[in-house]
């Protein structure tokens, strides 16, 4: 077979395969779009249509503009209820705080593990990964008791957004440290040695050499931590008391009724909540492939 025909056949085969995967990937995504557009706001759609009859953006406008009646500091006063904007502000704060903690503490620890030989190095690395294996579900009760003891001002740290950030960061740190350490390992040591000879301090070499070269891995760390802070709700639901601190993920959870769920609004809210994450994924996609060394592949 001539080379050209073979290439064309291969291309057709690949396209069929990848289009099939695309259909499988897009099917649930389309389903949730279709539900969000369904103006009837019924429990379950009655047919498999992308654009349901009477499609409208009503669910989106309702979610975006109307207050959430279940999440009010004062149940009698609508003005005290959370709106999409106030929920969004809390979510952003928690997600960004988690990202910042993970990347700052993670990079610092990973740098030590990657660049120094010291007593307890192996044990320290293993210690962080072992903590990832402990199921977090049952530690909720002890963590609740513990964080209630630590006071910020007059109130327990448990009920604050800062408490949430710290708790989420403890979940994202083990992976961040392992992944960053693996990436730092790929940065040649000679670069820093040269800088140190030129009189730079360890801190300077870290910020001037390691950080710029490790942008992909740092971006991945930020992405994962942001996602964790943005989507978590079980811990938040258990720990927070004041509805004015509630997040989007918690509001979404509160829509899941025991007997029925307003699916159009739930879907619209889901789409709105997924958008920032998807946008972040697209923005950081060029770093994603290079930034995930997962334990470290050295060339």
């Amino acid at each position: 077979m001539p080379r050209k025909t073979k290439d064309i056949l291969k291309q057709i085969g690949l396209q069929i395969f990848l289009l099939a995967i695309t259909v499988l990937v897009m099917f649930p995504v389309m389903w949730i779009f279709s539900m969000a557009l369904d103006s009837r706001n019924i429990d379950k759609p009655l047919d498999l249509t992308l654009i349901p009859p009477g499609a409208s953006l009503k669910a989106f406008t309702k979610v975006l503009t109307e207050p959430f009646n279940l999440l009010c500091s004062d149940p009698g006063n609508v003005r005290s209820c959370m709106t999409f904007g106030t929920l969004l502000a809390n979510s952003l704060l928690v997600a960004l705080g988690t990202s910042l903690l993970s990347v700052a503490l993670g990079a610092s620890a990973a740098y030590a593990f990657s660049r120094f030989k010291f007593i307890g190095r192996q044990a320290g690395m293993l210690g962080f990964i072992v903590l990832l294996m402990l199921p977090a579900t049952a530690t909720l009760a002890p963590l609740y008791v513990l964080l209630s003891q630590i006071k910020i001002g007059a109130e327990p740290m448990r009920a604050t957004l800062f408490g949430l950030m710290v708790a989420y960061a403890s979940g994202t740190l083990p992976f961040a440290i392992w992944n960053l350490k693996g990436y730092f390992d790929t940065v040649p040591k000679e670069l820093e040695e040269a800088a140190l000879i030129d009189g730079a301090s360890v801190t300077q070499t870290f910020f001037r050499i390691i950080v710029p070269l490790a942008v992909p891995a740092l971006a991945v760390t930020v992405l994962f931590a942001f996602m964790a802070g943005w989507t978590e709700f079980v811990l938040a639901w258990t720990f927070l008391e004041d509805p004015s601190r509630f997040t989007l993920a918690m509001a979404l959870r509160s829509m899941q009724g025991q007997f029925s769920t307003p699916w159009s609004e739930f879907s619209a809210m889901s789409i709105l909540m997924s958008l920032p994450i998807v946008a972040l994924f697209f923005a950081l996609q060029k770093y994603l492939v290079g930034g995930l060394t997962v334990g470290g592949v050295k060339g």
Partner: peptide, 26 residues
């Protein structure tokens, strides 16, 4: 070993309080 451990300390301390201590309690 003190210098590298001081870099690890912030992350280590956070994990100690948030992950390790509840585990001991558990």
């Amino acid at each position: 070993s003190l210098l590298p451990w001081s870099y690890i300390a912030p992350a280590g301390l956070l994990m100690l309080v948030i992950s390790f201590m509840p585990q001991i309690f558990q």
